[in-house]
Amino acid sequence: MTKTATKQGFTSKPLFKQILLLVLLIVLIVIMHLITGGKMLSMKNITKNILPQAVFPTVVAWGMMFIFGTGLVDLSIGAQVILGANIGAILAMDAGLGYVGLIIAPFIVIVICELMVVFCSEFLKIPGWIAGLGCGLIFEAIMVMWTQARSKTAGSAVITLGDDLRVLGRWPVNVIIMVVIFVIVYLIYNRTSIGINLKAIGGDPGVSSAVGINRRKALIIAAIIGAVIVGAAAILNISKAGSISASSGLASLSTIFKALAVTLIAMSLNSWISEPVGALGAGIFVSSLFNFLTIMGVQAGTLQEVILGAVVIICGVLARLNYKGVAK
C-alpha cells in the first residue's frame, strides 16, 4: 500500500471506492448494451462510434480542468476551437502547408485566445463568466467574418480538410492520441509543481498564498496548458469531421456542453478519483450513454441534450451539498 502511494498519486484516494466506481461504470455500460439487444458493444460500434465520439469531449474536459482550476469559467472555449481548427485548416489547404499548418496553428491561436480571456478577467477585472461570453462573441465573430468574406470570393463558405490530411481523426490514431494526451495530462496534473499548485489554489486559496504560491502566475500557466490541450482537441475534431462551420450568437456553447458535463462529473467525483482519470471515465460513459440513446432512436440534438442538461444540474447541486456560504 505504501509503495503504490508513493508511485501513483491517485491511490492516495481510497482504492476501494475507485474499484467501486469502475465496477459501476462497467455495469451501467453492460446494462445499456443488453437493452440494445447486444448492438452496442460490437467491435465496429466501439471503434467507429463510442471511442471516437468520446475523444473530443474528454480532451476538452482535460483542458477545462486546467482553465477552470482557479475558478475561471470560460465558455468561449467552443468558439476558440472553431476559430483555431479553421485557421489550421486554412493554413493546411489554402496556404498549402499541409500537416504542419494544421497542427501548429490551432495551438497558437487558441493559446492567444485564452490569454485574451485571462487578460479580461485578471487585469480588466471583468467577472470570468462575462469575459468568457464576451470573448466568445468576438472569436465567433472573427470566424463568421472570415466565412462571409470567403463565401464572396471562393464560393464555399466553409473550408474542408482534404482527405489526405485527416488521418489524425481516424481510428486508431485518434484514440491513441487521446491516450497519449491522457498520460501527459495525468503527469502534469499530479506530478508537476504547476499541477500541484493548481490543485492547492482550487482547494484552499488562503493556504496556497501563505505558502508562497503566486496565484496569478499559476493561473496564467494553467490557462496556457489548458489552451494547448484544447488546441489538440481542435485538431482532432476537424480531422474527424473534415470541416467545422462557424457559429454565431454563442451557439458554440453547445459544442462544448458535453465536455462541460464531463468536467462537472469528474469534479464531483474528485474525492474518489483523480480528476484526469475521472474525466476519462466520464467521457467514455457519456459517449456510451449517447450512443445507447442513438441506437434506441433518440436523435442527437434533442432529448440527448436534455439529459445532458439534467446531468449538469445534478452535478451542480451535488457540488454545493456541503457549501455553507452565499450562492449567487
Partner: peptide, 21 residues
Amino acid sequence: RANTFMMSLAIMIAFKALNNL
C-alpha cells in the same frame, strides 16, 4: 445553493434541445 449561471446554462441547453425536437 447551486450557481445560477451554470444552472441557467444547463436549462438553456435542455430547452434548445426541446426546441429542436
